[in-house]
Design a protein around this nucleic acid. Structure first.
Lengths: 175, 175
DNA sequence: AATGAAAACTTATTATT
DNA sequence: AATAATAAGTTTTCATT
């Protein structure tokens, strides 16, 4: 039963979102608690699957030529099953079911546009015959892709604010 | 000039994608190089903005009630400027310009559907008057959201493979 | 659930190739 | 660009509250 994060958890997560390798001891000093407290809370959050500390980076810098967003429509009654099968593709990084004119939205990585085209026109339809249509958006430039939480914690605590100082310095621009 | 990653860089990044807090010394032992080599390569990759080690987690577990994908169309000639202004919103986590029937795709976070609706119907149009239309997909369930690179490195090195063993155990399912 | 103490281990710096 | 040596700092374990 994954209970929500308390204020101390959030501060720890914010600190690690800024720098995932920052020593627990250092974070503990800043927050006025012991190193063990930071450690045990992070262990709990990771064990519960709520948080992971990981290397993230720009796909386009890591040898990925093409990043695409694909909207998928599925024969009624087969959405959940189709979504589950899409998660098995190594080049699909995101799979979500949705309300609206698409049943599933995915983000996929490709070496080049030829690879993307083959994927959409051949691989996907033959792997998931319940697909009734797809719509593909090849991304030209990723201007923001953020993993920090400080701004969100501020936003959710203070609904009035909009478009103030942003996370940009700690995000990776994936151009 | 960000040159691409060599094989050793990739192995280091893969290891840190699995566990971002794993000691450099431990990774170095596994890869048969010195700790300093792992450290200096990570320093370079981080300084060049190619890789970041960070805490990532399930938005829906962190107090985010609603995650949406929004496709945005913009008056011709204003796409780049509008995209840049969208990056300033703290509740927008992803901004990409794209080819296809949308000019910009964004991912946004909201407390509830009322907040999402206000954002789409009021906040966005008044902040970015060049928007000509939007299409919103409220995400119901995120089945995959992966940050590891091992599978991609395999995929890009071996085009024939499809839908084999996946990253799922190291991704966070954002239900 | 949080803490302090201590041994084991890692990091960050420096000099060397 | 990589390495070994080393002082300083961190992690991990455990007994205590």
């Amino acid at each position: 039963m994954p209970e929500s994060l308390d204020d101390l958890d959030r501060r720890i997560v914010s600190a690690l979102a800024r720098d995932g390798r920052r020593p627990y001891r250092d974070i503990a000093r800043e927050l006025g608690v012991s190193e063990g407290t930071v450690r045990s809370r992070m262990t709990r959050l990771q064990d519960e699957g709520l948080i992971r500390v990981t290397a993230v980076g720009s796909p386009l810098a890591l040898g990925v030529g093409v990043v695409a967003l694909i909207l998928v429509r599925i024969r009624p009654g087969h959405v959940q099953d189709a979504a589950k099968r899409l998660t098995a593709f190594p080049n699909i990084r995101f799979v979500g079911t949705s309300f609206g004119s698409a049943d599933i939205t995915i983000q996929s990585l490709h070496r080049d546009v030829k690879d993307l085209h083959r994927f959409v026109s051949e691989t996907l339809p033959s792997a998931i015959p319940e697909i009734t249509s797809t719509e593909t958006f090849q991304l030209a430039e990723v201007l923001k892709s953020t993993w920090t939480w400080g701004d969100w914690f501020e936003y959710v605590d203070n609904p009035a604010e909009e478009a103030h100082a942003s996370d940009r310095e700690t995000s990776i621009s994936e151009t």
